[in-house]
Design a protein around this nucleic acid. Structure first.
Ligand code: MN
Ligand code: MN
Ligand code: ZN
Ligand code: ZN
Lengths: 147, 147
DNA sequence: AATCCTTTAATAACTATTATCATCTGATAA
DNA sequence: TTATCAGATGATAATAGTTATTAAAGGATT
């Protein structure tokens, strides 16, 4: 691992009160040292090359820990199960990052996406979709109650 | 089912050479007759109220059939498995609707999202994310070869 | 009504994720 | 340095989500 990456890892662990274990170090490295948007399984395969006895459950658990600490992000806040949309009109979505609920947002309530320059060559664009991510009304209310 | 919805269903089935079965009718109705972004399991539960002997596999198969025919949409083209992003800088994504690959798109390559009016009250916005959906270079190349 | 082809129900198989728990280890202070 | 212990790990069972298989049933066409 690059010295710089290692130091950053130690710092992040300290900041978030996490033990800097070998497993966490390698999981972090597997993600940060190369581009891409990997699945837990892919990270597991990568880390196993250095730590053959690591458990897949450890990978899952630490990814959650890292996400919770804000050290990493998830690509999509609604990966859990397949969701079907019967609204065939162009429109956007409000997505709650807490309960994962999805509601329609009128197409005209957001301006068009402006492209500066060009997309990477070879990519055949079909459409832009915009998601407004945040906390829905119900979750905000539930949160407030607790305090 | 509303007469209008029923006629639309028959028309769509004819257009796409699909037998207009009871099961398909109820699956279509479960989606179209109410707002929301349902999972196959949720649709199954709804349809079972009318057709108690329907199989979950039938729901899955027909959702795929409908999607393929363009009668419905999926909310996200990358729901399959959890994907982690180690890039903490604000940025967007190119998503291939064919192979589901995800690549980064520089934040500045797209203009800011313009909000016309207000979001539904109670929703606490964290950020907008934009996905450029289309066919990636590799998939386009593979497609071209076949012809 | 008979035939053909599609669709369905049931269920096994498979993939993805989470829970459980005995054991181990990193961090801290003696 | 060693002892201590909360927190972390590995093994694996359990659960959730999806796909494959196949015999039987049902639309469509004649
Ligand atoms: Mn929608
Ligand atoms: Mn990214
Ligand atoms: Zn919510
Ligand atoms: Zn592709």
């Amino acid at each position: 691992m690059r010295r710089e990456t290692y130091n950053e890892f130690r710092r992040l662990c300290q900041e978030h009160n996490l033990a800097a274990t070998h497993q966490r170090e390698k999981i972090y490295e597997a993600l940060v040292s190369r581009p891409g948007h990997y699945s837990p399984e892919e990270i597991y395969e990568q880390v196993k090359q250095d730590l053959p006895s690591i458990s897949l459950a450890t990978v899952y658990k630490n990814l959650k820990t890292f996400l919770h600490a804000g050290m990493l992000r998830e690509v999509s806040p609604h990966h859990g199960s397949w969701r079907i949309d019967a609204n065939r009109h162009p429109h956007h979505h409000l997505v709650c990052t807490h309960c994962r609920s999805i509601t329609d947002l009128d197409f005209d309530s957001l301006g068009p996406v402006k492209l500066h320059g060009k997309l990477p060559s070879g990519f055949r664009l079909e459409k832009f979709t915009i998601e407004a991510q945040g906390i829905c009304k119900a979750c905000t209310a539930a949160e407030t109650k607790q305090h």
